[in-house]
Computed example of a mutant assay.
Amino acid sequence: MDAKQNCPYCDFRDDPEQHVVFENDTCYFLQHDRHQGVLEGSGIIIPKIHRENTFELTREEWADTYELMQLAQSYLKEKHAPDGFTLGWNVGEASNQSILHSHFHIIPRYSDEPYAGKGLRHWIKKPENKRPQQKPE
């Protein structure tokens, strides 16, 4: 099956819980309804054209992602007053990319949340997440 078929980000308008907050020529900034179990204010930037992962984005899509990221930051600061942000892309199954349409997470973070202070560095520095030692050949 082609990855574009039934892609929830190609067909996001069919999902009443996804809302376009901003858009430009090549990308959208979407937010989920708060009832989906995501942190308040969380959203994603997706290219309008199906791109399986971030490495497939065009220069224009990169620039438009940057533009929407700046708009989203201002909007989220005003509307939700977060104490910080976690930003990022997952690429590939090992990175937990579950939807094969590039999407850039913008996650407002709050000092009173249970995982406050646990950003990307926290997870990559966990000793239990180290790869097993490879034997030299």
Rank of each mutant, 00 (worst) to 15 (best):
A3V: 13
R51T: 02
Q36M: 15
G117Y: 06
D25T: 10
C10T: 01
Q18T: 05
N24M: 02
Y9N: 03
H105P: 03
L57Y: 04
N24P: 02
W62I: 07
P108D: 06
G117M: 08
Q18W: 07
E78H: 11
I45L: 06
V38A: 09
E113P: 00
H35V: 11
K48T: 08
K126N: 14
E78K: 15
P127C: 05
P108Y: 01
I99Y: 02
L120N: 12
F55I: 08
I45M: 04
R13N: 08
K4W: 07
Q73G: 09
R51L: 05
P16V: 09
H103S: 03
Y66R: 13
K125T: 15
V20G: 05
L30R: 00
R34W: 10
A94R: 07
E52M: 13
K4H: 10
P132M: 14
L57F: 09
M1I: 12
I107V: 15
K135M: 13
Y28H: 07
G84I: 00
E93I: 09
E52V: 15
A3M: 12
S42C: 11
Q5R: 11
T86M: 02
E60V: 11
D11E: 12
W62H: 15
I44W: 07
Q31D: 03
V21M: 08
I44T: 03
Y110Q: 05
D2Y: 09
Y110S: 04
T86S: 14
L57G: 01
Q36T: 15
Q73L: 06
L76R: 02
K125W: 12
T26H: 02
F85D: 01
L71V: 01
K77V: 10
P114F: 09
R34Q: 13
Y115N: 12
Q70K: 15
K126F: 02
I44Y: 06
H101D: 04
F29I: 00
E93V: 12
R109N: 09
E56R: 12
H122D: 10
D112E: 14
K130S: 15
Y110R: 03
Y115F: 13
K130N: 14
P47T: 06
K118P: 01
I124Y: 11
V21F: 01
Q36Y: 12
F12A: 01
C7I: 05
Y66K: 14
F85G: 00
Q70S: 10
V21A: 04
Q73N: 11
C10K: 01
H101G: 01
S98K: 08
L30V: 02
E61W: 06
P127T: 07
G43L: 03
D64W: 00
Q134G: 12
F29G: 02
P82E: 05
I99K: 00
S74C: 12
D11P: 00
P108W: 04
H101L: 05
S98L: 12
E128N: 11
D33S: 15
H50Y: 10
Q5A: 14
E137T: 14
F12W: 10
P16G: 04
A116G: 04
E93C: 07
L120C: 11
S95M: 08
W123E: 14
G41Q: 02
Y75H: 15
N96E: 13
K130H: 11
L30F: 06
Q36N: 13
V91M: 10
L100Q: 08
I46Y: 05
